[in-house]
Nucleic acid binder design. Structure first.
Lengths: 154, 154
DNA sequence: CCGAGACTTTACTTCTACGTCAAGGTTATG
DNA sequence: CATAACCTTGACGTAGAAGTAAAGTCTCGG
């Protein structure tokens, strides 16, 4: 096989490399989170490295931000737009349309950034609380040990 | 009614104050996330202020960290332990047992802190990436506007 | 050209975290 | 003591995010 040009991956490999199941990959495709990949003549899906990256991204959005797949879809579509704009940045056609797209992309990212910032902040707060709690525990432990030293277990 | 001594709350009030439904409160109880509250003679649940706090805590763990209720239960049980230790800190009985409990609590909190720290860090990373992305978008927008100024829309 | 293993779609199932009645008991108040 | 407002348990339903099984198709190495 020509494993040189672009190194396409079958679903099994993508699954292995991303840590999700094949079912999940098909599911994401079905839900519009992954663009339908190209196919071999026989119908086998052929993914690109970009797809692998995207899956990783999706998972991070899920795990870190706890977004639903519907919400993630929105985010992913903004990425999509970015890619498109990047690609066809030369053809100077229809600038006002590009402006519109760009404006929307900025809106989406701004909202997302808001979410992330807020969560990040709350997270830090929580972290400090837990550190404080841990210090308390450890102080108690020290005290307990001192008591034990004075009056050892029978 | 004696609304003086401890100000117990019925499930409706707790629901209102915590922003979750009554169903959710019963559900959390069922799942062991909330200790079964005391009851009136007729069977109505009577919650304490502590319960309200705990529900808020549970919700934060859900929203911020995206933990499952099963995972949250573990965390909440550590809190429980903390409360217990705090309460019966005077009776000097069975110090080695207390030590054991304390040690376990420290372990749990340490693990939790690990999770939170990691997530917080990843969150910051993500935030920076998004800020970077946003700057890129805005730079492009500026460029587009300059182009438009030179060659206005027909 | 053939068989093992990878892949396809379709369909049904599971799990979590509740929502939504239903039918009836309790409490506070006029 | 009536009655509205509140609560009880129980049972069934649902949305999101996949898991699993079935039955058939494709690919590739030998």
């Amino acid at each position: 096989m020509s494993e040189s040009t672009e190194a396409y991956l079958q679903i099994g490999e993508v699954a292995e490399r991303t840590g999700v199941t094949q079912r999940t990959l098909r599911f994401y495709e079905e839900k519009g989170l992954l663009r339908p990949p190209s196919r071999m003549d026989g119908g086998f899906r052929l993914y690109s490295e970009d797809d692998v990256t995207r899956v990783a991204h999706i998972r991070r959005l899920q795990n870190l931000l706890g977004l639903t797949l519907a919400e993630i879809k929105e985010m992913v579509e903004a990425e999509e737009m970015l890619q498109e704009l990047k690609a066809q940045y030369r053809p100077e056609a229809d600038i006002s349309e590009k402006r519109r797209q760009l404006q929307e992309a900025i809106g989406v990212v701004t909202r997302q950034l808001g979410i992330v910032s807020q969560k990040a902040e709350q997270m830090s707060e929580m972290k400090e609380q837990m550190e404080e709690r841990l210090r308390t525990f450890e102080r108690w432990m020290t005290e307990l040990e001192q008591i034990e030293r004075k009056a050892p277990v029978a």
